[in-house]
Structure formats: structure tokens, C-alpha cells
Design a protein around this nucleic acid. Structure first.
Length: 830
RNA sequence: GCAGUUGUGGCGGAAUUGGUAUACGCGUUAGACUAAGGAUCUAAUGUCCACUAGCGACUUGCGGGUUCGAGUCCCGCCAACUGCACCA
């Protein structure tokens, strides 16, 4: 056989076309096969196109999906577009094009790029969140939530991005600036749609026990939801009941003052009794002007004002204590007021020091002169009346019971999680299907009127007061009330980008259904997603939101499972070269200048890829030079899948060289259909290694094993047809194009994707003779060849027959002989 | 500050979970082929010493410990990354 050169350009397009024509990767709805649902986070089709980071997770699950098909599963590996969102809208404003047109263009580009990489997506199930047939059901879910009082409207301080001109969810504010654009975030009062995710806080934590998520995802979600167990206690302030929340009711005898949030509503009512009202008003004004960012910056230095003329009474001992306002107490958590225990809370301690307030020790074990003693494991209660001598744990229980009995308080669980700000005053999102009627109030649109289409507008710019561009569409806004038929106004806010992505995995199960978001049969068959891989940056946003929606849909009987995703894994980022890296510079002066200019970033050789740094690698170029199979395999070989890894143009070539070598194996193939005796063990070892590593995200070592195997064929100079068949099938999920081409060349018949996954025989993974290491006094001194099932005596016999080793222990007394079967011999001598 | 993760060659990274540390790849060096090679093939490649030869010494951020044996377990430091950031 005369072998053509390996030319990815030719064969990759060819096989992509064949797969498409054959519908090779279409999931079947009716089959006896077990199902497997693999999911990746569908992309936001940005104008910049795909970068080299996108294919990493897609390839990983493509490998799993392709392998599962060969193992006999009915696999669903779908793809779609999360296409609503601000960048598209901003681009549309700038260039005076309809966002729909921009979206179509971007989707087309993304699709072409993705298809050129050869993912085994089921393109017949492609979904797009901006498609009315899709967002009809996003709106439908919203209506169900509205009907269950989980969607409500409220005036509230929102995080307002001054650049995007849009309200943001707490989750979207990072370090006091907008997560998307980095713009300054202010607090503004605005009537906003909210979703009551906090009602699900408990279940969102508890049900994590039932799913197989990587640990750091679970931890991050738990911390974000932030459950804390404590008590609510009623203090008396100026003769009035004021409730506080504490996680340390055991320290109540150590309360020396109280602190209220500057925004606390009681303050206005006490205006006449507060003798230093001017100071108080001044402090309130200053703290309201501080952005969250500034408040955080100043966190170390406590500020506050004492309320002159206001006294509080500690309910446990009747002690009179002063009351302060300070912005270290937040109105949005607990009750907006706290009891301060400076002996056992770091913030209270700092505040007390600054304002010269008494600090009382009520838990012995630390030194409260130096710092607050916050340990809850070791301390013993003192100076605390009936609690004296108890541990913190016991005291908490005792005091809570006592408070409950006296009617002064009760056990209480609080969460950091806040309700989800769900409205955006922007155009490119799902319209909220609610009508405001003077008589009837907020009325949901009848389901028969869904989808409520996004109308065409003249301008996509937000209004001067930040109202939605839809508000200017009077024809659209003016409508009739579905309930009373009277005049009414449509809601003009739209949903955030997170809406469409909160349930898209359900739509894939039955993407063309116009009677329901998906049929019951499809939901029952495909639920839950078996393996979901995505970025860590979505842990507290998309992942949490979609779990919430799914639980709601479960509650109203739409979906059959409590949790949407059985398994969640996460990939590391692919980093680019850092042009500012100080390692690149010769002189110390140059280095220092770069460190000065770019800070810690200058010390990192690799950083996040970004347009502004000009270090973005485009997959198209990689495919053009090396081919899609090389791109795929390099991204899998680059390092630990879960960790960030720097892109290296040079290393890519190593993978291409490997594929060239695989291709050239065809030249040395013999007609033998069997497995040669000397290759049996390496072959079975490789099958085992690849099969197991691909399941545990260790794609890099699976590839290393295949490289070693190929090197063995080269060392030998031949490969049988039988061995070739196994190798091609093993390599197919990683490099699907070259393997299909070779399969065809070799005349095996059919296609690789329809073949079965090779299986290994455990017996055959072990050589008859094995090499075991020999240590003398724990130091490696050589190796021994023994039969694989040799016992200790047999091994020691081989040891004693070895002259070189024996000279090592000559004249010494053997104290101990240790043999770990198949691994090591250690002889201890004296 | 708190939580989580991680420190292994010049580089990306392996190490069956306590058993020959540095697999696989990049890079580098030498040789082969060649008119030529930035292609390909072969070999070498942790550091130091010896180099006629090795059964030589040292080595997984630093310092201790447990063990016949530690990259892996324990204690104490140091550094980096990610997330949270006054959540009572």
C-alpha cells in the first residue's frame, strides 16, 4: 500500500460531512439502550468568535460521549446558544443593527468554528434562547413562579452599573464593580422584579449531599448560600422591642452595647429623642454615599455614632447599655441590629477599643486584652449566671431554651443568600409577560398569549432614567387587561441573561415541542443530566440559579427529579502568554519598571487570554496549521484538566508529531488479525488506562499511555491488523477524523463510531515476569525479575542468588525482610 | 482576615494513593539521512562527583516527626492561585 501523507485539511472536512449526512450522533428517543446525557455550558455567541479556551471542555465531554456511544449507550450530547445579553445589545446600539441580526451572524460564525473541530453534537437539537419558540417557555416558567408568589416586584436598592446602565444581581457585582464591563456600581432605588431563591436556600444546600459534584463546587455553593444557625433575641430599646440576630446567644452576658445599621427604620421615629440627631443624620448621609466598594475598603477602621438619649436593656440580666449606629452592621442581613459582644467577636472588639467601651470575658480560654476570643471549641462560660461552667455548645442550647421559655427569643436560621434581582431595563432579553392594570394590579398574561414577542423598536438605548427601551414603544406598552378588559400597561423590563440558561438542558430533551417545554416522556427518559461540565465562574450564578428553577419545576410536577445534574465537573482555563512577564527582560531596571507598571501580573508567565493583551489564540489558526485532531488532543494533553494551563505553540507540534506517527503505522501493518504475544500485555494495559483515565478527567495521562503504546510499535517495527483495530478505536474519541480515515484505509468496514469500545482482560494486564525494586535499609539498590505470582520465599531466593546485591549486605546481620507483592523488597541489615 | 486549592527538571506535567520520583510531551545536545533542513529517524538529557568503570552522593517550597520505606501521612513555617469579604 502506498501511503498518502497525513493531511488533516482533506480528511477532516470529509468526515464531518459524512457524520452529518449519516446523522451519526443524533440521540434516539426510542431505544432499548441505556441513556447517557452529557452536557457542556452552551456558549454566548460573542462577536469575537471562539477562542482556544472554548474547546477544552467541549472536547473533554466529546471524548466521554463518543466513548459512551461505543460502549452501547444512547447518548445525548447537545449544543445551543445562550444568545440574549448585553454585549450583543451594545454592539447593536453602536452599529445601528438589530440585535437579532448580530446574533444570527455570531451564531453562524460560532457554529462553523465548532463544526470544524468535529464535536459529536446532536445538531438536530440545537436551541437558541432568543428564539420565540424557546423563550415562550422561559416566559411560561416565569408565569408559574409568579402564580406561586416566587416572582414579586419590590422597590429596592439595586446595584446599578453606571456603564451598562442596568441593574445587577449581587452575584454580578465583583469587587464593587460590574462583573461584565468593570464599570462603577452605585446603589439606586428602583422597582425591580425579584425571584425568591431564598425560599429554596435550605434545599439548595441539603440536596448537595445527593449529587456528585466536585468538592470545591459544593463548598463554594454552601458558602455562597451561607447558612448560619443562631437565635433571634428581643432587646428593649427606649421601651420598645428590638429584635437582633446572633449566632452566639451563649455570649449574651457579655453584651456591652448594641449597634444598629444606619439605614434602620427606627432611627427616624426616634428623631426627637436622639439628642445628637445632627451627628446621626450626618453619619447616615455619609454612609449612604459610600459605595459597597468603599465600605469594604474601609473595613479595617470602624466608624460610628453613639445615640445620645437612647438606652437598651439586656434581657438576660437587665443591664443598661448604650446604642450606636455603624455601617459595619448591614440592614440587609439579619434584622439590621446586633448585640455587641466585644470579648468574643473581632469586629465588636475593634469597635469597643475605638470607642472605649467595656469588654467583658464570658468565655474563658483566651486573652481578651489582646484580641477577641472567638474559639467555640475549647472555651468555658464564665461571668454568665446560670450558664457558668458550660461549654459554648451547651450554653447555646441552654440559653436558647431559656429565651424561648421566657418569650424573649427563639432559634433562627439565617442565610447570606439574597433574592435574585430578575429584571433588566434593557431590550435584548425575554419580555416579562405581566400587565399592569389600574383596577386589577399585576396580571399575568394568559398562557395562550405566549410567547410575548419582543417588539421592534427604533432605538435600543435605555431611557434617560434607565428605563427599558421598550418603554418608548407606546403602541406595545398600551394594552388591555386580560382580566377586566380595561386599559393597562405592559411590563417593560426584560429578564436577565441567566433566565434562558436556567432550563436549557430540559429543552434539549425535546427541542421542537410546541405543547410543553418538553414532553413528559422525554423528561422521564433523559433526566437527569448524567455529566455536566462547566466553568467555576458559574458556580454561584448559573449553576445555583438553574438548580433553583429545576427544584421549582419539580415542585409543580413538571420535571421528575429534584436535581438537574447528577454530576458536575469543572475545567481549568487555558492561559495565554503574558507580554509583560518580567522573565522576558534582561536588566534589573527594566524588570523593576514592569513590576511597577503591572504589579503582581508582571510576575506571572501566563495570564488569562484577553483582547487587550493581544495574547488570544484563535482555534481556526491552529486547525489550519495542524488540524482539528491535533487541536483537540493538545488541549487534552496540555495538563491537568481541572487546572489552568498555559498555551504553548511549540508543544502543539508534539501532538501533531504523534498523529503523524500514528498515521505512518499503516506502513508497517501486517495482515495478522490477531494480537502478537509480546504486545498483548502493553495493549491490555493501555486499554485499561485509557478507559479509566477518560472517566476521571485524566485525559492527559490517557494520551501519554497511547503515545507509549505507539512508541512500542515503532520499536518493534510492526503492528498487526488486530492491534491496529484496537489502537484506532482507543484513539477515536480523542482524534475522530484521522481514526475514521485510517479505519477506512485499512478496510475494516463500517465506521469507527459504530464499533464497540475495546475491553481489557485484567489477567492480561500483568506480565508473567515482573520487575520488583530492591531496597537495602530503605535505599533503592536495584531490581529483581520474578514470576508475577511469586511468594516471599521465592523472591528472597532470587534475591540471594544475586551476587551484586549480596555483596551489599555481606558481613551484616539481616534484621528484617519485607516483601510487598509485586512492588518491592526491602532488606533491613545492621 | 476567612475558606478552598496548590508548590515536583529549563518548560507543560506523571507517580497504581505509603513502595524504583521525574512517565508522556516540549525544549536542548550529538549523530544519521540530505544539495539543504526549522522535515524525519536514532541516542542522550534532574543536580553533583567519577568518566577506564558507578553496586556513588544528593534531590519533590522550608524545618521537624512517624515508618523498614514519605512527593504522598502528622506538626510548624513560607509562597502562590481561586473564591468570599464587616453576614453578627
Amino acid at each position: 500500500m502506498i501511503l498518502r501523507e497525513y493531511d488533516p485539511k482533506q480528511i477532516e472536512k470529509k468526515w464531518q460531512r459524512i457524520w452529518e449526512e449519516k446523522g451519526a450522533f443524533h440521540a434516539s428517543d426510542r431505544t432499548d439502550k441505556p441513556k447517557f446525557y452529557a452536557l457542556i455550558e452552551f456558549p454566548y455567541p460573542s462577536g469575537a468568535g471562539l477562542h482556544v479556551g472554548h474547546p477544552r471542555p467541549y472536547t473533554a465531554l466529546d471524548i466521554v460521549a463518543r466513548k459512551r456511544r461505543m460502549q452501547g449507550y444512547n447518548v445525548l450530547y447537545p449544543i445551543g446558544w445562550d444568545a440574549f445579553g448585553l454585549p450583543t445589545e451594545n454592539f447593536a446600539i453602536k452599529n445601528k443593527i438589530h440585535p437579532r441580526v448580530v446574533t444570527e451572524r455570531n451564531v453562524a460564525h460560532f457554529k462553523e468554528q465548532m463544526q470544524s473541530i468535529g464535536f459529536s453534537f446532536d445538531w438536530s437539537r440545537e436551541v437558541n434562547t432568543t428564539d420565540p419558540a424557546y423563550y415562550k417557555w422561559t416566559q411560561w416558567i416565569f408565569l408559574q413562579m409568579f402564580k406561586k408568589d416566587l416572582a414579586y416586584k419590590r422597590m429596592m436598592a439595586v446595584n446599578w452599573c453606571t456603564q451598562c446602565k442596568v441593574g445587577l444581581a449581587n452575584e454580578e457585582v465583583v469587587n464593587g464593580v460590574c462583573e461584565r464591563c468593570g464599570g462603577k456600581v452605585e446603589r439606586r432605588m428602583r422597582s425591580q422584579w425579584m425571584l425568591a431563591i431564598t425560599k429554596y436556600a435550605d434545599r439548595l444546600i441539603d440536596d448537595l449531599d445527593d449529587v456528585d459534584y466536585i468538592e470545591r463546587v459544593k463548598v463554594q455553593q454552601k458558602n455562597w448560600i451561607g447558612r448560619s444557625e443562631g437565635a433571634e433575641v428581643d432587646f428593649t430599646v427606649n421601651g420598645r422591642k428590638m429584635t437582633i440576630y446572633t449566632t452566639r446567644p451563649d455570649t449574651m452576658f457579655g453584651v456591652t452595647y448594641m449597634v444598629m445599621s444606619p439605614e434602620h427604620p427606627y432611627l427616624d421615629e426616634w428623631k426627637d429623642q436622639i439628642r445628637n440627631w445632627d451627628d446621626v443624620a450626618d453619619y447616615r448621609k455619609k454612609s449612604s454615599e459610600k459605595s459597597d466598594f468603599e465600605r469594604t475598603e474601609l473595613a479595617k477602621d470602624k466608624t460610628g455614632v453613639k445615640l445620645e438619649g437612647i438606652m437598651a436593656v439586656n434581657p438576660v440580666n437587665g443591664a443598661e447599655i448604650p446604642v450606636f449606629i455603624s455601617d459595619y452592621v448591614l440592614m440587609s442581613y439579619g434584622t439590621g441590629a446586633i448585640m455587641a459582644v466585644p470579648g468574643h467577636d473581632t469586629r465588636d472588639w475593634e469597635f469597643a477599643r475605638k470607642f472605649h467601651l467595656p469588654i467583658i470575658e464570658v468565655v474563658a480560654g483566651g486573652d481578651i486584652e489582646k484580641e477577641a476570643f472567638v474559639d467555640i471549641e475549647t472555651g468555658t462560660l464564665v461571668n454568665s449566671g446560670f450558664l457558668n461552667g458550660l461549654s459554648v455548645e451547651e450554653a447555646k442550647k441552654a440559653i436558647t431554651e431559656w429565651l424561648t421559655e421566657k418569650g424573649l427569643g427563639h432559634k433562627k436560621i439565617n442565610f447570606k443568600l439574597r433574592d435574585w434581582v430578575f429584571s433588566r431595563q434593557r431590550y435584548w432579553g425575554e419580555p416579562i409577560p405581566i400587565v399592569h392594570c389600574e383596577k386589577c394590579g399585576m396580571v399575568p398574561l394568559p398562557e395562550s398569549e405566549l410567547p410575548l414577542l419582543l417588539p421592534d423598536v427604533d432605538s435600543y438605548e435605555p431611557g434617560p432614567n434607565g428605563e427599558s427601551p421598550l418603554a418608548a414603544m407606546t403602541d406595545w406598552v398600551n394594552t388591555t387587561c386580560p382580566q377586566c378588559g380595561g386599559p393597562a400597561l405592559r411590563e417593560t423590563d426584560t429578564m436577565p441573561q441567566w433566565a434562558g440558561s436556567s432550563w436549557y438542558f430540559l429543552r434539549y430533551m425535546d427541542p421542537h415541542n410546541d405543547q410543553a417545554l418538553a414532553s413528559k416522556e422525554a423528561l422521564d427518559y433523559w433526566s437527569p443530566v448524567d455529566w455536566y461540565n462547566g466553568g467555576m465562574e458559574h458556580t454561584t450564578l448559573h449553576l445555583l440559579y438553574s438548580r433553583f428553577w429545576h427544584k421549582f419545576l419539580y415542585d409543580i410536577g413538571v420535571v421528575p427529579t429534584k436535581e438537574p445534574y447528577a454530576k458536575r465537573t469543572s475545567h481549568g482555563m487555558i492561559l495565554g502568554q503574558n507580554p509583560h512577564y518580567v522573565g522576558n527582560f534582561e536588566t534589573q531596571a527594566e524588570k523593576d519598571a514592569m513590576i511597577e507598571k503591572y504589579g503582581a501580573d508582571a510576575l506571572r508567565p501566563a495570564v488569562k487570554m484577553s483582547k487587550s493583551l493581544g495574547n488570544v489564540v484563535n482555534p481556526d489558526e491552529v486547525i489550519d496549521t495542524y488540524g482539528a485532531d491535533t487541536l483537540r488532543m493538545y488541549e487534552m494533553f496540555i495538563g491537568d484538566f481541572e487546572k489552568a494551563a498555559p498555551w504553548s505553540d511549540k508543544s502543539v507540534n508534539g501532538v501533531r508529531r504523534f498523529l503523524d506517527r500514528v498515521w505512518k503505522l499503516q506502513e508497517m501493518m501486517t495482515a495478522d488479525e490477531g494480537i502478537s504475544a509480546d504486545m498483548e500485555t502493553p495493549l491490555h494495559q493501555t486499554i485499561k488506562k485509557v478507559s479509566q483515565d477518560d472517566e476521571s478527567l485524566k485525559f492527559n495521562t490517557a494520551i501519554a499511555a497511547m503515545m507509549s503504546l505507539v512508541n512500542k510499535f515503532y520499536a518493534k517495527g510492526s503492528i498487526t491488523r488486530g492491534e491496529m483495530s484496537v489502537l484506532i478505536r482507543l484513539l477515536n474519541p480523542d482524534a475522530p477524523h484521522i481514526t475514521e480515515e485510517m479505519w477506512e484505509n485499512c478496510g475494516f468496514g463500517g465506521y469507527v463510531y459504530e464499533q464497540s469500545w475495546p475491553e481489557w482482560d485484567e489477567e492480561k494486564t500483568v506480565e508473567a515476569m515482573i520487575t520488583i525494586a530492591v531496597q537495602i535499609n530503605g535505599k533503592s539498590k536495584g531490581t529483581l525479575q520474578v514470576a508475577k505470582d511469586a511468594d516471599k520465599d521465592a523472591v528472597m531466593e532470587v534475591f540471594r542468588a544475586d551476587q551484586r546485591l549480596m555483596t551489599q549486605i555481606e558481613g551484616k546481620q539481616v534484621v528484617k525482610e519485607i516483601y510487598v507483592p509485586g512492588r518491592i523488597v526491602n532488606v533491613v541489615v545492621r
